[in-house]
Design a protein around this nucleic acid. Sequence first.
DNA 1: GCATGTTGGTGAATATAGTTCATTATTGGA
DNA 2: TCCAATAATGAACTATATTCACCAACATGC
Lengths: 237, 237
Amino acid sequence: MTAVANKKRSVRLPRERRMADIMAAAREIFCDKGYGDASITEIAARAQVVEGTIYTYFENKQDLLVKVLEQWYEGMLSDYDQHVAGIAGTRNRLRYMIWRHLKTVHSEPRLCRLVFREIRTSADYHHSPIFQLNKKYTDLTMQIVEEGIESGEFPSDIPVKLVRDMVYGGIEHHTWNYVEGDGDFDVDRIADTITDIIYRGISSTSQRPKEETPVTRLDGLAARLENIAEALEASTG
Amino acid sequence: MTAVANKKRSVRLPRERRMADIMAAAREIFCDKGYGDASITEIAARAQVVEGTIYTYFENKQDLLVKVLEQWYEGMLSDYDQHVAGIAGTRNRLRYMIWRHLKTVHSEPRLCRLVFREIRTSADYHHSPIFQLNKKYTDLTMQIVEEGIESGEFPSDIPVKLVRDMVYGGIEHHTWNYVEGDGDFDVDRIADTITDIIYRGISSTSQRPKEETPVTRLDGLAARLENIAEALEASTG
DNA sequence: GCATGTTGGTGAATATAGTTCATTATTGGA
DNA sequence: TCCAATAATGAACTATATTCACCAACATGC
């Protein structure tokens, strides 16, 4: 019997190393099973410690999840600013923000799922570092819209926060099934389309009904007639 | 001592009545505390039954929540169709769908919170009646957009599902704080703005240089209309 | 190199739900 | 009035997260 070899072996690792081990194990299991179905026992086993050890480094299960996602978030968002700085033009910058967000969801659906479904719904989310990081980068999107206002591309009365919410809310809903493990989506195509809808939706160039002139009415009419003609041509061959 | 009066009194109510009592109690407590912090014991006490009785009528806690929200959903969505049928014009209909959704969130934030945070995240959501009801009414929004395509107001290549997701995702994000019990929002104003951004964002309008004068634009329009007329003559003649 | 205090690590015990089930007793129908 | 069916009961069970008293690895000072 190797009973002696099986006796408990308690090795003291450096604090950082032990935390990293636990977080790595937790990340794998949270991603595989989701927060609710992941058990502390399983995470402990994967990290080669017992349950109690986890509580020496993390307040509780929720805190462990938050720390795991914080670490990921920090690395992921670190190069945002410099990338945006290298892009010229409101529309291009806006598209980059949208594209980048879609890209992140596409490459890390499991982690995004945890952020969307578990983290944001917790009571003290608004005081968490992950909220601050998120805010920093959605603020960047709003800043780009505000630059568009200053340049005259957008009128000054557009509600910047609502635009932000339509972008990120739209992306979240549109990628819902993918994040749940069902289907796929085309990052570039969706980025183009969202950018287009938002840009045209808030642009100063297209006239609003209240500012309608005979010329813009004819313009709209021409566009409608073009569509109808196109449809007719398609149907009559 | 009134010990005798305190002995258990087991009364058999009609099945419908007992279920209604339990669901009413559950609705109150789920709304007050959220799903996670609501306990079966407390719901049972409020409904004047014991824990076990709840399991005679509902599979488990999650099923109880689903049944509560289903009941609410059915009543809430019942008059949707007829209202929309009474509204003329793509833009007005679209605005109604948006307004109505905002109105619902505004008047029942607690119940909406449960749908947003608890129900939609469950594994079998796609097979639940509440998903079907929801689909029925977001489909109506897409149908309105498709009517706009047929009328020529929108080009035929716009991604209808993405438009739907930007509407409902945008609303969900924009009402997030309110639903979490913080702040307020103006239903009519937000409805106007979202409608405006979406409508303009997907409308058929031609891109044109900023320096154009009314005369040159009319000239260009005339050429386009001539082409359309020619195409129509060719296809119908 | 040894004694020793600090503290990481252990794993059994505890707490807190949700869920089950054997038992009791109400009630509609024979 | 009696009886079978089953609603209702509430204690027992289960499954986890969390705590805690105890042990021992390691750093420090002598």
